[in-house]
Design a protein around this nucleic acid. Structure first.
Ligand SMILES: [Mn+2]
Ligand SMILES: [Mn+2]
Ligand SMILES: [Zn+2]
Ligand SMILES: [Zn+2]
Lengths: 155, 155
DNA sequence: TTCCGATTTAAGAATCATTCTGAATCAGGC
DNA sequence: GCCTGATTCAGAATGATTCTTAAATCGGAA
């Protein structure tokens, strides 16, 4: 088999292996390829995106395997599903706290950091709601590329 | 036809009528019922939720009409789609700035206000991204009801 | 190395939310 | 009342995702 792209230098990769081992998951080539593709991606790809990318080096991969594997990874906390709503699910190997910009036109999702927000803590307005696990900012708008295309087509 | 629940006292209702008129939409009984059901709801219902609620007073309503109408309302800015991702779309008649708590177990969505956050403005980290239209906080966790059920079932 | 249970593949079929199609109905203008 | 375009309805179609089954393959413990 063609060796996978080198991603073991990614700090997330160590954690990934540990999580898999603890969950009793075998480290199959398919799983490694799928994780690697997601780990090097910056665009929060869909299952089908990952399928096409993995297929370049592993032509026999089945779409079902990609769906199944991503779901498995998510259930053991090795990756995250990006819940900003789209018709298709989007995935993220970055588990640390960060936020997302979402383009209403092209559906691109971009990470950003916001320390000023992170240090705010949880809002007191929700102290009675339940147990909060995560707080995240979602910014919506139109990305630069789409603004440019828009301007071009208008003349 | 059975008259709709009285919601014209809702300050949003005035705006709703104006928006529809400006968009050239006829105020059909179906549209009024669908808007009213959403306007009185506090739970960010799905299209199917609204379908079942409207059907109580309008038994012949078609599910497709609910989907089509909600999409129409959203496109003219009369309602909002709550993009916290679920397998199904959730809707909101509240258009003012506010934020959401999402329960990972029961998928309930609850509004909250957070002035401290609102006055922050847009983060400088994203100034180059494009044109930002909206910033929203999404808190994820487990709601009180689900925590209680969990505790009960564990003994 | 051997062996067993886990995993993948292939090809479909099933599911579920949502959208589309075509016919029927309605509202308002003439 | 009649015409026309907007709207609704019921059922079919779509598309992402999951599931089924059976056969082939693989990973890793012993
Ligand atoms: Mn991300
Ligand atoms: Mn809301
Ligand atoms: Zn864009
Ligand atoms: Zn809950």
């Amino acid at each position: 088999m063609i060796p996978a792209e080198q991603t073991s230098d990614n700090p997330n990769f160590e954690r990934f292996q540990t999580i898999c081992r603890d969950a009793g998951l075998k480290l199959t080539p398919q799983r490694l390829e799928i994780y690697n593709e997601l780990a090097v991606a910056r665009d929060h790809p869909s299952a089908e995106d990952i399928f096409h990318r993995v297929r370049r080096r592993m032509p026999t991969i089945a779409l079902d395997t990609v769906y199944r594997t991503l779901t498995t990874f998510e259930s053991i906390g090795a990756i995250a599903r990006v819940d900003v709503a789209d018709d298709r699910a989007r995935f993220d190997a970055e588990l640390g706290p960060h936020h997302h910009c979402v383009c209403a036109r092209c559906r691109s999702i971009k990470d950003f950091q916001w320390e000023t927000f992170d240090i705010l803590g949880m809002p007191k307005e929700t102290s009675a709601w339940g147990r909060l696990m995560d707080k995240q900012v979602v910014l919506r708008g139109v990305c630069r590329d789409c603004l440019r295309k828009e301007a071009d087509s208008e003349g």
